[in-house]
Design a protein around this nucleic acid. Sequence first.
DNA 1: CACATGACAGGGG
DNA 2: ACCCCTGCCATGT
Length: 113
Amino acid sequence: MQDRNARIYAAIAAIPPGRVASYGAIAARAGLPGRARLVGRLLGEVPDGMELPWFRVLRASGHVAMPPGSRGFREQCRRLRAEGVEVVNGRVPLSRFGLDGNLDHALWGWPDA
DNA sequence: CACATGACAGGGG
DNA sequence: ACCCCTGCCATGT
């Protein structure tokens, strides 16, 4: 059970800077296909201080998942732009920055393939 | 124990 | 491209 969370965190930590991934993609890479919601629930409970690139996780549509205008929303957009990711109206062009759905899988440098 | 909720996703209209 | 509905599943009432 706890091991499950660890794998999800690992999947998120593996997203290269300047790129983004969807909740579903993270769940899949963590060996939990179809459990995107689980990933979202976990991100909502990331203990302060835990170092994790949570801001690189978006909806499958490329949208930032938090309520537009909310504190977290702005924080996420800010951090993404800080590393060169383009955010337009709370949305990121997955065609260019997305890790899933493209030919960029080679960039996921983790232990499987 | 039944029911509502949620940082989700995919398919259809 | 947007809205709605359905499938999912852990938590909280």
